[in-house]
């Protein structure tokens, strides 16, 4: 019910305020900064602190006495022996989970890259009409719920899944590789993050000047030469960025191994979930395991960003 002249005063104050650089910076950057500090930095700091504390077994309360036991237990006291010549290493469940997650994520990333590159290349060369249809076909799975896509593979795999049923019907019989387990998880992750790779690659290929490639081919360069000397260097930011978008979430995957692993694929996300809210609930050991993953991801990103700028990663 403010009188018109009060509105005017308010407006004038706002205008003069916004004209001052300091105030406008505060108004624009401030709210986001508060959110980031309260909901990102503070929780991560808290998690770091808890990872150095311990938990009361009975009440789940945090006992604030500094200890490195949670970290020590991540790497000490394992049972699985790996030997490389004379070197023998005994890995813990955590180390195995990390190794498994990184291996699965690497395979999924390589598969995404191999599968997405040709499609992205074709898309970049399509005329507008065809492009619109193809991009629609690509974006639809991309926007479809992650959970639905993971679930769709649950129907496909398994001893009595669609794949084995079809194989059985044509007499090839059920195949072990199509049962739940690591192969199913890899396929699920590749399918889940394929559009991320594709779109990032497409973004970098779209800027590519194809007349350059034609020219190189006319000058007699072989396909391999063209790919090696022109296409790859020009699309490197897309390759690196796309790989990051596939690799990082694959390392931390939870839904896919949970749905497609039949309890036998203990990736790091599952291990952390079990420690956080599962049977062996313990905020301190869960935090320690999470911190170890955060650190490894930060290191990976640091390495990546030495080569590519964040801006070049596209809008995904």
């Amino acid at each position: 019910m403010a009188a018109p002249d009060r509105d005017e005063t308010l407006r004038a104050a706002l205008v003069s305020g916004l004209s001052r650089r300091r105030t406008s910076l505060g108004v624009t950057a401030g709210p986001g900064a508060i959110w980031i500090v309260l909901l990102l930095i503070a929780p991560l700091a808290f998690m770091t602190a808890v990872s150095f504390a311990s938990i009361d077994n009975v009440t789940f309360n945090i006992i604030w006495e500094p200890t490195v036991n949670n970290y020590r237990d991540l790497v000490v006291g394992g049972t699985t022996e790996y030997s490389l010549g004379p070197l023998v290493y005994t890995a813990t469940a955590f180390e195995k989970a990390v190794l498994l997650s990184y291996s699965i994520a690497t395979v999924a990333t390589v598969l995404c890259l191999t599968f997405a590159f040709p499609l992205a290349y074709v898309m970049a060369r399509l005329d507008d009409r065809a492009f619109k249809i193809v991009i629609y076909l690509v974006l639809l799975p991309f926007f479809t719920m992650y959970l639905v896509r993971a679930y769709s593979w649950r129907l496909m795999f398994g001893q009595s899944g669609v794949l084995n049923q079809v194989l059985g019907a044509v007499g090839i019989g059920p195949i072990g590789a199509f049962e739940f387990g690591i192969p199913a998880v890899i396929v699920g992750l590749t399918h889940a993050y394929f559009p991320y790779m594709l779109i990032t690659l497409y973004a970098s290929l779209d800027g590519l000047d194809f007349s350059l490639i034609e020219a190189a081919r006319d000058l007699g360069a072989s396909r391999v030469d063209v790919i090696r000397d022109h296409i790859i260097p020009l699309t490197l930011p897309g390759i690196v960025g796309g790989s990051l978008f596939v690799f990082v979430p694959s390392v931390g995957a939870f839904i896919t191994p949970q749905i497609l692993g039949q309890g036998k694929v203990q990736m790091i996300g599952i291990l952390i979930e079990q420690r956080a809210i599962g049977e062996a609930t313990n905020a301190a050991t869960a935090s320690a395991a999470s911190m170890a993953v955060v650190v490894s991801i930060v290191v990976a990103m640091f390495l990546v960003f030495r080569y590519v700028d964040l801006d070049e990663l596209g809008g995904v």
Binding site: G77, T80, A93, K264, Q266, A280
Partner: peptide, 10 residues
């Protein structure tokens, strides 16, 4: 005990 089960599942 918790660690043992994690090892089993790993």
């Amino acid at each position: 005990y918790n660690a043992a089960w994690e090892e089993v599942k790993a």
